[in-house]
């Protein structure tokens, strides 16, 4: 995307620079129908199709090994609960298994927040009265930084959390009450 954008920018600026050195064809046909209509339509059609295709693929679909967790935002903390371990609630740390798709059901008890773990997925808002489901997946075990990405008042800058992705053994241990 960046390379394409750079090429288009270079083209436009080049055409402007050339205008200072020569008087060229001033026809509406070339400039408007060709450059103004046909060129962007082609580029945009390709880009849109690509975006929709990727967007479809990122949707949370049903699957056998999907893990479900709940995320509840408030000013200025997150609580996480787990379908596989009823009654367990962790504060500001979300535990997930690595290598398996995880559906995070996101909501809030006060104002709007947004759940965002940049290295695992895009962001999705926590909206009062609504539950939004985000599909995330960590390829490798490890710790990932997460943050709320919707302005929520004074404590917004520090409204962060952490995601710990466990390997299979670690995840079992967590569910059985090991690492909390």
């Amino acid at each position: 995307m960046l390379a394409g954008a750079g090429a288009i920018l270079a083209l436009v600026l080049g055409l402007i620079a050339l205008a200072f050195t020569r008087t060229g064809p001033g026809t509406e046909r070339v400039w408007i129908a060709g450059m103004g209509l046909a060129f962007p339509l082609t580029v945009l059609a390709a880009l849109l199709a690509y975006g929709l295709f990727v967007g479809e693929r990122l949707l949370p679909r049903q699957g056998a090994d999907v893990v479900s967790v709940q995320a509840e935002g408030r000013q200025w903390a997150w609580s996480f609960a787990y379908d596989d371990a009823p009654g367990v609630v962790t504060e500001d740390v979300l535990h997930i298994p690595a290598g398996r798709p995880v559906d995070v059901a996101i909501t809030t008890v006060d104002v709007i927040h947004s759940f965002w773990v940049p290295r695992l997925a895009g962001k999705l808002d926590a909206i009062p009265g609504h539950v939004n489901v985000l599909r995330i997946e960590a390829d490798q075990p490890g710790r990932y930084r997460g943050a709320s990405a919707e302005f929520s008042g004074e404590g917004y800058a520090d409204h962060e959390f952490e995601v710990i992705a466990h390997d299979a053994a670690g995840w079992d241990q967590f569910l059985r009450g090991g690492t909390r």
């Binding site: 402007i16 205008a19 064809p25 001033g26 400039w31 408007i32």
Partner: peptide
């Protein structure tokens, strides 16, 4: 697209 039409009409005007 309509933005592009305008930009290229301006560049065409310069030419």
């Amino acid at each position: 697209v309509p933005t592009g039409v305008q930009v290229f009409a301006w560049i065409g005007t310069m030419w």
